[in-house]
Amino acid sequence: MTNTSTRLLLTCAAIGVAGGIVFSVSAYISGTLAAAAPMFYGAVIGVYFLPGVVAQALLRRGGVALITSVIAGLVSVPFQPIGFMAVMAAGSIGLLQEVPFAVTLYRYWKAWLFYLAVTIAGLLFGLGVFVAQGAEQAAPWVQIVHVGLFVASPILFTWIGRTVAKGLDRTGAGRGLQLPVVRPRTRQGRDRDALPMTAA
Rank of each mutant, 00 (worst) to 15 (best):
M1I: 04
T2S: 14
T4C: 11
S5E: 00
T6F: 15
L9G: 12
L10I: 03
T11H: 05
T11Q: 13
A13K: 01
A14E: 06
V17F: 14
V17P: 15
V22T: 09
V22N: 08
F23D: 09
A27Q: 12
A27K: 06
Y28Q: 11
S30M: 13
S30W: 04
G31F: 08
T32D: 15
T32G: 15
T32F: 15
T32S: 15
A34Q: 05
A35G: 11
A36S: 10
A37L: 14
Y41F: 09
G42W: 05
G42D: 00
A43I: 12
I45S: 15
V47G: 10
F49Y: 13
V54Y: 14
V54Q: 13
L59R: 07
R60P: 13
G62A: 05
G62C: 03
I67W: 11
I71C: 05
I71N: 08
G73D: 04
G73Q: 04
G73S: 03
L74W: 01
V77E: 11
Q80I: 00
P81H: 02
I82G: 05
I82T: 09
G83M: 06
G83W: 05
M85T: 03
M85F: 05
A89N: 07
A89V: 02
A90T: 00
A90C: 06
S92Y: 06
G94T: 01
L96T: 00
E98A: 01
P100L: 01
F101K: 09
F101G: 07
V103Q: 10
T104N: 07
R107V: 00
Y108C: 08
W109H: 12
A111W: 08
A111E: 08
F114P: 14
Y115D: 09
L116I: 04
I120D: 12
I120A: 14
A121F: 03
G122V: 05
L123E: 10
L124V: 09
F125W: 12
F125T: 06
F125H: 13
G126P: 08
A132P: 07
A132L: 09
A132N: 05
A135L: 07
A135D: 07
W141N: 10
V142G: 06
V145L: 13
V145H: 03
H146R: 04
G148K: 02
G148R: 02
F150I: 00
S153K: 04
I155D: 02
L156W: 01
F157L: 10
F157C: 08
W159D: 10
T163F: 15
L168N: 12
D169Q: 04
R170N: 11
T171H: 13
G172S: 08
A173P: 15
A173M: 13
L177Y: 09
Q178I: 04
L179A: 11
P180W: 00
P180F: 01
R185Q: 09
R192T: 04
A194Q: 10
